[in-house]
Structures are given as structure tokens and as C-alpha cells.
């Protein structure tokens, strides 16, 4: 179902949604955008082309989250029940990431109720990328700037209006009352999508990559590429698909909380005995790359990277995952 939404009508539409739900959209904060709940539709900045600096996975897996409190000998839920939410202007890569993480949090043997509840309560109104950034590489990892998987609605920018490709019942609720798009508009939106994907460079090929990485497991490759790595958490914390967390009892407050954690930190794999199975940056860098491009593929038959480019842009030493993959493909053990 294709609907048409003149851009001038968007604020009114957001206002209407705000009557029923909390609406999140990218909001300018200094030099970047971050998803925030809107108090005024004008706060939404959909024209800032780049991805939000901070990944929207935080709307489903907050960086710090209280799981429950203990009062006397009783457990108390946190009371942060999620009401209905609309996430507007999330890009295809970040939407795809949520879908990949569903595999981790809800589709397998164990269900994470914190994640699942927020996912159920949320409608994703995705904004396709007509002008992908130089550091984007979604088309290299099996996705694209208008990848519709996981989207309730995909907005395609035609200049003065959006064509809304409504893809789920949740999406229909938000867009039902709008006029249908004409065949001409639908055709124009297809052109925008094809043109965007065609503009993107392909920094690497993934054919045979998983096997290549397994073959490199014990090689000198990892020690070579990790040399400049500082061992900070920028790449993993900004990554839309990294989901590791650490559970801590904040005993002073009688709270059990969970915080994002990262395999790039030494203490991530530090065991109580004092032993660390990933003692150096070499093993840790290997883990990060292998998880995304080999283990995730084994588990879910999908690459665990959506090509958003955040790690590329914000790594303090310009250690570029695209270059790592290219080097891995080319590596010959001497």
C-alpha cells in the first residue's frame, strides 16, 4: 500500500501521532542528531543526512537499564512500562539492525522481555536514504539504503512529498487516512531507490569471507591489524548491532541493572580467577570481526553488520572495518 504525504503536512501528522504515542525522531544536539522523544514536531530533524551519532538500538536496549528492584525480600518491577511509541526517521541500516537483534533477543530459545516489550510497542517509520554517506556500505553487507525489512513504513523522499510504502498493520494505523500515491509517484519513488543504491561504492566482497576468516583464526593477521587499536568502546557502543551487556547489582540502591558492555574492553573477558581468555587486543579485535562476519552468519545466516559506517567515522585511530575486511580477503600467511 502506497500513500502520499506532502512534507508540509508532516508536522500535523506527527502531532496526531503524539496524541496516541510517544514519537521519537532525530533531534539536533550540537553537531549531531540523537533519537529523542518529541515534545514539538518541529524538533524532528529528518534532513540531517548522516546517521544519528548514537545508535537507536538504545531505544530498545538502553545503555543503562534497571531490570528490577529488591525491597525487603520482594522483587519489584521497575515500573517503566513502555507505552505505545513511534520511531520516525530511523534509517534502513538501523532498522535492519533491530531485526537482526530480534534473532538474539526474541526468536531463539530465550526471550528477553525487556527488549520484546519495547519492540512490540513500537512502530518504525523508516526514512530511506536517498543520499547515502561516503562511509556507508550497506550494499556490501546484504542490505541497501531502502532495505524495507523490519520497516512498518518506508518513507521515500520525492522532494516536496514522501511516498509512504506501508508494510504492516502497525504502519496502516498511522497512515491509513492519507491519500493513495499515484502510479506516477510510485514509479518516481522506485527511481529514487534505484539511484541511491547505484551511487554507493562497494568497498569489499563478502563471497567466501566467513571461511576466509575461520582460516585466518590462528594467523598473524589479527596481530597486524590490531596494532593501532586503542581498545576503547567507540566502535561497539556506536554499533547498531552490538548488543553485549553486563549485569550489575547496584546494592546501595537495591537495583539490578544492565549496562552495555564491549568485547573490546579487557575486563569484558576477565574471569574471577584472574585468567583472561582474550588477554590482548589481538584476540579482542578478532572477536569483534569474527562475531559480525562469521559467528553471526553461522547462527542466523546473516552478516551481523549493517554497513552504517559509524565505527568507520568515529574510530579515534581511523581503524576502518572496510579496510580490515579487504585486508582479510587479501591476506596470505607467510
Amino acid at each position: 500500500m502506497y500513500k502520499i504525504l506532502p512534507k508540509a503536512d508532516l508536522p500535523r501528522l506527527i502531532e496526531k501521532w503524539m496524541e496516541q504515542a510517544t514519537v521519537y525522531a532525530p533531534v539536533r544536539q550540537g553537531d549531531f542528531t540523537k533519537f529523542e522523544p518529541l515534545s514539538d514536531p518541529a524538533q524532528a530533524d529528518l534532513y540531517y543526512a548522516a546517521n544519528t551519532r548514537y545508535p537507536p538500538k538504545s531505544l530498545f536496549l538502553p545503555q543503562s537499564e534497571v531490570m528490577f528492584r529488591v525491597k525487603g525480600s520482594e522483587f519489584e518491577p521497575t515500573g517503566d512500562e513502555v507505552s505505545s511509541r513511534v520511531v520516525l526517521g530511523i534509517h534502513a541500516c538501523d532498522t535492519r539492525a533491530l531485526q537482526l537483534l530480534d534473532g538474539v533477543f526474541v526468536d531463539r530459545d530465550y526471550q528477553d522481555p525487556y527488549w520484546a516489550r519495547k519492540r512490540e510497542q513500537t512502530t518504525l517509520v523508516v526514512l530511506g536514504c536517498a543520499n547515502p554517506c561516503e562511509t556507508c556500505f550497506c550494499t556490501s553487507v546484504g542490505s541497501g539504503p531502502f532495505d524495507k525489512r523490519g520497516a512498518d513504513v518506508m518513507l521515500i523522499d520525492l522532494g516536496n512529498e514522501y511516498v509512504a510504502d506501508v508494510r504492516s498493520e502497525k504502519g496502516q494505523v498511522l497512515f491509513d487516512h492519507l491519500p493513495d500515491a499515484s502510479q506516477e509517484q510510485i514509479d518516481a519513488s522506485r527511481q529514487v531507490q534505484a539511484a541511491a543504491a547505484a551511487k554507493m561504492k562497494k568497498p569489499f566482497e563478502t563471497e567466501g569471507l566467513k571461511d576466509k576468516l575461520y582460516n585466518l583464526f590462528e594467523s598473524g593477521f589479527w596481530a597486524t591489524i590490531q596494532q593501532s587499536c586503542l581498545g576503547c568502546g567507540v566502535c561497539t557502543f556506536l554499533c547498531p548491532t552490538c548488543y553485549c551487556f553486563d549485569i550489575v547489582d547496584e546494592v546501595q540502591r537495591n537495583e539490578r541493572v544492565r549496562n552495555w558492555d564491549t568485547c573490546m574492553f579487557r575486563i569484558y573477558s576477565q574471569e574471577a580467577s584472574g585468567h583472561n581468555p582474550r588477554p590482548t587486543n589481538t584476540e579482542r579485535t578478532r572477536q569483534r570481526i569474527m562475531h559480525k562476519y562469521a559467528y553471526f552468519v553461522d547462527l542466523f545466516n546473516e552478516i551481523g553488520c549493517t554497513g552504517c559506517g559509524r565505527c568507520v567515522r568515529y574510530c579515534p585511530v581511523n581503524l576502518d572495518i572496510r579496510q580490515i575486511i579487504r585486508s582479510a580477503q587479501a591476506w596470505e600467511e607467510s
Partner: peptide
């Protein structure tokens, strides 16, 4: 308020 405790400042 924007800190995400990635410790890039420390490591750099």
C-alpha cells in the same frame, strides 16, 4: 551528560 563511557579519552 553526553558521555557513553567508551573510555576513548582514556585510551587515546
Amino acid at each position: 551528560g553526553r558521555c557513553i563511557r567508551c573510555y576513548a579519552c582514556r585510551e587515546a
